[in-house]
């Protein structure tokens, strides 16, 4: 029933590498979009509206994945859309990681009242219905790239805070930390030099999952109409655009959906892989 350790190891690496490959391809497509995409993302052609994908009757090779309700090429929009979706993901990961790790660090290192106060903050954040909070914030303060990134980061910082806090607590009483304290190394230096590096690997693992989560959250917000309203669409925006065309142009929704699912899947595969390789203790 059980396979040999090597084959299990290989399979795990294979999945991780698969995820990494997909991510790299998506990232390259995003970066080189102007060269890869056959059309501009906002190139409107009112004469070529709602053309189906090439493999369906009525489709043509001019538009491999069909066109949308304004006659824009869906393949090109999916490629350009990767720019927005990935940068929202990356932005949210960076902000979330910074805030979350900082809070986790303080909370874990100082313990006591600081820990209690920060844990309280975490609990309040968790108890908030996130989607409602996000819609509310974005609708009152306005959409746009920055606010979406910040709001999405709001959804993820808690994960970092928890993991980092745990890591910090497990190392803060180690001898080398005590030694540093006893020779009078300033606290901020102790945190930076001796404590934080121990949490790096866990932060990276959480980041790869958060990236996936962030892309999904952005898609959901755009779908609700409070996302980024730019000419370059995010995948979520495309999903929302296609919503009233489900019956006569399903490809408007299907294509960005597949792109999102693939990218998120890749992010999760990488996360699993990293977790196994770097930090198996995090496995729930």
């Amino acid at each position: 029933m059980r396979r040999s350790a090597t084959s299990v190891f290989l399979r795990r690496n294979a999945l991780g590498l698969l995820g990494l490959t997909i991510l790299v391809i998506v990232a390259l497509a995003a970066i080189f979009a102007p060269w890869v995409a056959p059309y501009g993302p906002a190139k409107i052609d009112l004469m070529a509206r709602l053309a189906p994908p090439a493999w369906i009757d009525g489709g043509s090779l001019k538009h491999l994945l069909g066109t949308d309700n304004l006659g824009r090429d869906i393949l090109s929009r999916v490629i350009y859309g990767a720019q927005i979706s990935l940068s929202v993901g990356a932005g949210a990961v960076v902000i979330g990681a910074l805030i979350g790790s900082f809070i986790g660090l303080l909370s874990g290192y100082f313990g006591g009242i600081v820990d209690a106060a920060l844990s309280f903050l975490v609990n309040v954040q968790l108890a908030f219905p996130f989607t409602l909070l996000a819609i509310f914030l974005l609708s009152t303060f306005g959409g746009g790239f920055t606010s979406v990134v910040v709001v999405v980061a709001l959804a993820t910082w808690v994960n970092y805070a928890r993991v980092v806090r745990g890591q910090v607590m497990s190392v803060k009483n180690q001898e080398y930390v005590e030694a540093a304290k006893s020779v009078g190394v300033p606290t901020d230096r102790i945190l930076r030099r001796y404590i934080l590096p121990n949490a790096f690997s866990s932060i990276i693992v959480v980041a790869s999952f958060s990236m996936a989560q962030a892309i999904l959250t952005e898609a959901a917000l755009s779908f609700l109409g409070v996302g980024i309203g730019s000419a370059t669409p995010s995948w979520g925006t495309m999903l929302n655009d296609g919503r009233s065309y489900l019956q006569n142009a399903w490809w408007m929704t299907a294509m960005p959906g597949v792109a999102t699912a693939l990218t998120v899947l890749a992010g999760n595969l990488c996360g699993d892989w990293l977790q196994d390789r770097i930090d198996p203790r995090l496995r729930k």
């Binding site: 906002a42 304004l70 974005l138 609708s139 306005g142 959409g143 996302g227 309203g229």
Partner: peptide, 24 residues
């Protein structure tokens, strides 16, 4: 908005687009 924007590009206007929440 996007179609109108694409027509305006022809007279050298450089449009940017912004969805605004209904209450706002």
């Amino acid at each position: 908005s996007e179609v109108v924007g694409s027509f305006l590009e022809a007279i050298n206007i450089k449009p940017t687009y912004e969805a605004v929440e209904i209450g706002q």
